[in-house]
Design a protein around this nucleic acid. Structure first.
Lengths: 219, 219
DNA sequence: ATTACTAGAATTCGAGTAG
DNA sequence: TCTACTCGAATTCTAGTAA
């Protein structure tokens, strides 16, 4: 499996910008920077290659290394750990702007299975609709971090012959107004987050598509 | 010396909040989470103890662990590495608010030794004074990261029998206006950053103490 | 100059177990 | 239960060196 040494080398390569493109480097140099012999550096690099964490190109005797997607993902996971350690205090600030959804939020919220749990666990009766916010790129990492946290679990259920999955919720404020951030447990990568609240947020906060908002999420 | 395994364990303990306070934990649990035996976990923990990276308390047979300052610092250094990999693209955004300085910025800028280098390396003749900005806590980590980067080096010199140290500069904009961020090489921890520009920024940008500003630093 | 193989040395592992 | 010791086994190291 993947060892801390593997991550150490991956990080070292990424600091040489190998996460962006192929970077020429020698095994002696790697060894020097890691405090091990050239031979060990060579072996470890081939280990990363076998684990499909890096790609290696050869120009004659020299090599150029680039992190594979899997390698970059692994480092991102590490990064998220450190963010959890140092950045997540009591709350996280997320900025973005209002966008239109497909109106399906209303359907989900009104399902009895979700509605009852929202009342019980989030302590408010939700307005039947969600506010969609497109998160600015600079705050996307925070969303990824939130996905790794437990939050408040709204359990899934089966109804009308289909499965409604678990949903994670975080109490938050949006432009100062109490609300909750909703994250489906199984979700594809997206920069859209969904907010629910007791009242219609578009009306209460005078929001239109494109209006910038600040969401403060409590952990 | 400190190995990647040591960092791995330190991080694991920090994820259990051992960076904040003593946390009760067993060596079996550590072993399980690290994918090694209880014996190895015990040995590695004692290794961290010897390296003075953690403090260990005993309650009878049980132990409680807390990261020592040295351990927290080590993890912070790791975190900064990951920030360099993922966050520093071409620029960093830093937000804060204007505060009053002691007027000493003027004295330093006007020293011939600094003034000439600023003209040559930053490509503008600086207004004789600095704008002090108190950085919001959420962006402080970025300052720490900047301190680890080379930037543009303004070399120190000796004049009037005293030493003027090296200073690091980064080209930036403040509220859209071209300027430069100045960081003395040897500086104590502070949330105040100093900005210089061609004109008086307070006048040009209509700034008063407490005015929020956005500084975009180019790397 | 490189990378990377072999082989013996050095280190690290975990089972067994004491306290 | 816990932690942590001993010791033989397993792994990982580097020197030497081929290509």
């Amino acid at each position: 499996m993947i060892s801390p040494e593997d991550i150490h080398l991956l990080k070292l390569l990424a600091l040489h910008r190998a996460n962006k493109d192929f970077v020429g480097i020698t095994t002696s140099q790697i060894g020097k920077e890691m405090g091990v012999s050239q031979q060990t550096a060579s072996r470890r690099l081939r280990r990363l290659l076998n684990l499909k964490l890096v790609e290696v190109r050869r120009n004659g005797r020299r090599i150029a290394v680039k992190l594979a997607k899997r390698g970059v993902d692994l480092l991102k996971k590490e990064f998220i750990d450190y963010q959890r350690i140092f950045e997540l205090s009591e709350y996280v600030e997320i900025t973005g702007e209002v966008v239109s959804g497909l109106g399906e939020g209303r359907y989900y919220i009104m399902k009895e299975g979700y509605y009852r749990q929202i009342k019980e666990k989030l302590f408010f009766e939700p307005y039947p609709g969600t506010l969609n916010v497109r998160v600015y790129p600079k705050d996307m990492q925070k969303i990824e971090t939130l996905k790794t946290l437990p939050g408040i679990c709204i359990k899934g259920f089966v109804s009308e012959g289909r499965t409604f999955g678990n949903v994670k919720a975080f109490l938050c404020t949006i432009n100062g107004k109490d609300a909750a951030l909703i994250i489906p447990e199984r979700t594809h990568y997206t920069d859209i987050i969904e907010i629910i609240a007791e009242k219609n947020l578009r009306e209460e906060l005078n929001l239109e598509d494109g209006t910038p908002v600040e969401v403060v999420v409590f952990l």
